[in-house]
């Protein structure tokens, strides 16, 4: 596997894997979607991003997985100012981040096993080196019997878990998930939450954008609450939240 030059030596001095300093963001010439965000996520933390539709939750995740750039302010990932990161090192930064998209974004022509292995193959790993790991991971997310199925034949919850497997297979430092329970029933939502908590326990920094207040309440984890593109609260769930 090709060595990721941004893998080992890049932990921030203050232990923050993500740091926003007065960050704003806009799409083209549209009004700002995110405004003046300042916060940091310590390594190994677990947060939810909450807020009404259009508050900027997905945009916030996009900034972190480098699908968008700040229009103002400084964004540091793993201690590195991403604005100064050359284009050819961005893929290496992305390899430290796992993303679970709301619409999954799986590759329909590949089996579940191959989809889960994509980040490893992209990083240059040989199939022999990861076959066992990927099979175990898919078993862990409950897809042991669906490894050879193509994504279009999977149920919503199965696709969701496959997307999670793909996001975590490279053992990312940060796991981002956008509405990961939006397409599944309550029971599956809880299973997915337990999965994220388990990954967090193993050291992964987790950030989940969600509308699911029950999920937030059950986890007992802190929130970043956005409204109209501004961060209006960061910390434990306030009394009467969502009521």
């Amino acid at each position: 596997m090709s060595r990721n030059p941004y893998a080992a030596d890049a932990t921030d001095a203050d232990d923050a894997v993500v740091r926003f300093d007065d960050v704003s963001m806009r799409y083209g010439r549209a009004p700002e979607t995110l405004r003046d965000l300042t916060f940091s996520l310590p390594q190994g933390s677990f947060h939810f991003v909450t807020g009404p539709s259009g508050a900027g939750k997905t945009s916030l995740l996009k900034l972190i997985y480098l699908a968008a750039q700040p229009s103002k302010g400084l964004l540091h990932l793993f201690g590195q100012n991403v604005a100064q990161a050359p284009l050819d090192v961005r893929p290496f930064l992305r390899r430290r981040i796992g993303v679970v998209f709301q619409e999954f974004r799986l590759l329909d022509h590949m089996s579940a096993f191959d989809n889960a292995a994509v980040p490893l193959r992209i990083a240059g790993a040989k199939p022999d080196s990861y076959r066992q790991d990927v099979a175990e991971l898919l078993t862990w997310v409950g897809l042991k019997d669906r490894m050879h199925a193509l994504p279009p034949t999977l149920a919503g919850g199965e696709k969701q878990r496959l997307a999670i497997a793909r996001a975590v297979v490279g053992r990312p430092d940060i796991l981002l998930a956008d509405e990961p329970t939006g397409n599944v029933d309550h029971e599956m939502g809880l299973r997915i939450l337990r999965l994220f908590l388990e990954l967090n326990r193993l050291g992964t920094t987790v950030l989940i954008a969600t509308h699911d207040q029950d999920l937030v309440a059950r986890s007992g984890k802190p929130i970043l609450h956005l409204e109209d593109g501004r961060l209006v609260h960061m910390g434990p769930v306030p009394q009467g939240f969502g009521g």
Partner: peptide, 9 residues
């Protein structure tokens, strides 16, 4: 799918 692949690095 392109964004999905890009996000994997």
């Amino acid at each position: 799918p392109v964004e999905g692949v890009r996000a994997t690095g």
